[in-house]
Design a protein around this nucleic acid. Structure first.
Length: 108
DNA sequence: ACGTTGACCTATA
DNA sequence: GTATAGGCCAACG
């Protein structure tokens, strides 16, 4: 595994319950600004990862659950988020601005 | 080996 | 405010 993925997983694992972050934020935090797609790829591989990665806490910049289809069932992501107190409606996170957990700001 | 695709983002129009 | 374009780089066929 390259360090990039390890870093991504590490950051994602640090996201507190009930909070969310965005792919771009992680990419920027890792210094790979502009390569936010790689973060998504990393999430895709997180399935095979031995450790559990709360990928449901990572959404796009608009707060939209674009990756929900990559879970077992499309509703799994919403369920997990709702289970943690994050309300989801029409595939988007409610109050995304306040729930956003930016590693650049939080881990600074 | 090459072209296409994609859990994205930013910038123009 | 939506729409389209370009960039990014790893995996897949």
């Amino acid at each position: 595994m390259s360090d990039f993925y390890q870093n991504v997983y590490a950051v994602v694992r640090l996201i507190p319950s009930g909070r969310v972050t965005s792919y771009g934020a992680i990419a920027r935090y890792l210094g790979s600004s502009g390569s936010s797609r790689m973060v998504g790829w990393a999430m895709n591989l997180s399935h095979n990862q031995p450790i559990y990665v709360p990928a449901h806490r990572v959404v796009n910049r608009n707060g939209l659950l674009t990756g929900k289809i990559h879970f077992g069932t499309p509703d799994q992501m919403e369920e997990l988020l709702e289970n943690e107190g994050v309300h989801v409606e029409d595939d988007k996170v409610l109050g995304f601005d306040t729930l956003l957990w930016d590693p650049i700001i939080e881990l600074r």
